[in-house]
Design a protein around this nucleic acid. Structure first.
Lengths: 240, 240
DNA sequence: CAAAACAACTTGTGTGTACAAGTAATAATT
DNA sequence: AATTATTACTTGTACACACAAGTTGTTTTG
């Protein structure tokens, strides 16, 4: 019941306005935003304020700036953990196909999740779906996903935009991933994992438990991934 | 022979000046920088410019800002990959002891490095050292490290500040890590790894190959890590 | 026709100012 | 004595302006 005070920062409203236009496709990836001076006119403000808003969008990874040209909308692929916000494809150089093997449905929370659930999450129903990522038509990653139904409705896998759950969250619900926590383990493949990935039981598997925090209060996405890294190592990179 | 043009950005000189004072210990971790107005006086400039410099240092992870109080120097632990810039301790909750098992010495480049070396690195000699990280007095991580001797001299392990190689680079050489690329694999423990970590051969091990890019042109640090994750999973988190 | 100069845009850097908002110690009030 | 107001600092937001520097298309020049 804590009514959070909403502060009226001018640069924040400009930032939100432009972000929504990017998320909604009004400013598609690859296009250029209106010039800073044009935005100044639209919001009756100065370049200082507009530049502050654009600077925030730059930090959020929505745009890049090019001196002399403008601010370009880019695919938001700030690497979060080992994966990319827009899905799995960004972290691997090969063609990836994703198959939803257990459609989104309501189940119980799985005790395999190593993170502490909030009280709200514990009380809520749980939405679950399973996917298998294929590289060159061979299964490489088995992925279990959960989130609280109180925070977000069940989304049918047929609604997934370009097969991506994160893209759907962004474009259809204006929800962005804000951060992630992970635990990584090297484990022998269980019988179920071996079956799903078409390998022998006991082969070393990279096990990743991840919690994605989102811009929607109360909504966390929990993932449980089993990666066969014998042919395709997981790659990622970070820059300051 | 490309003589890079040096641009005189006022905020850049302020930024460099303060960064060096932080690295050198003039502004120790936990202390507060002089106020923005004081810095204005020292450099005969306006708050706009000083704030731009501080904003860059904020992005670089050297300071945090507290409204009404000041800019505080913080331990720089932007998570780079699975490790922390200041060493291994940041990524694990337990007490960590590091033992250098093969002192820094000149050897040949090891073909196990999965990254493409530059021509300069190939031509240069290679400095190598090996460490074992212990948690609660049990060996958990075996770590091989290489870098080009042309880019940086051999540093004796006795010189390591607080046992940390990265801390030494920062405080004694003003070299900072700027980014990293990684490859992760789950593999069975080889005979040598098993011996060093005191486990059975064949146990699943998390293998991390990493290249750290530094602020010193031409200097990359290559790492080859073998982590026993049965008792201590590798953790990390990211926030935008 | 080709190269150079120009014009018209863009973002980047910087000065100068004003007030809002948060913090902490002190002074005034109850 | 405890609470409240004041004061003097800090950083945060915003306005208004000026010029530097990079990009692109057009015009002028040789």
């Amino acid at each position: 019941m804590k009514a959070r005070k909403i502060k009226n920062r001018k640069y924040h409203t400009i930032q939100d306005f432009i972000r929504k236009r990017i998320q909604g496709g009004t400013y598609p990836v690859g296009s250029y935003l209106p010039s800073e001076n044009e935005i100044c006119g639209q919001f009756s403000t100065t370049r200082t304020t507009v530049r502050k808003a654009l600077d925030e969008l730059l930090k959020e990874g929505f745009i890049e700036k090019e001196q002399g040209k403008g601010s370009k909308v880019v695919e938001r692929r700030k690497s979060l953990g080992l994966l990319t916000v827009k899905g799995f494809s960004g972290s691997i150089d090969y063609e990836v196909k994703t198959i939803v093997t257990k459609g989104p449905k309501i189940t119980q929370w799985d005790p395999i999740i190593p993170f502490a659930l909030t009280e709200e999450e514990k009380k809520s129903d749980c939405v679950y779906f399973q996917r298998v990522r294929h590289i060159n038509d061979r299964p490489v990653v088995l992925e279990n996903n959960w989130y609280a139904n109180d925070a977000l409705q069940v989304i049918d896998s047929g609604e997934f935009i370009e097969g991506s759950f994160f893209k759907t969250l962004s474009q259809a619900y204006f929800i962005e991933v804000m951060g992630a926590e992970q635990e990584l383990r090297s484990i022998p493949a269980s019988q179920e994992v071996a079956k799903n990935l078409g390998i022998q039981e006991g082969i070393p598997i990279l096990h990743i438990s991840v919690r994605f925090r989102t811009s929607k209060p109360g909504l966390n996405l929990y993932g449980d991934l089993y990666c066969n890294t014998t042919d395709y190592p997981i790659r990622n990179s970070y820059f300051l």
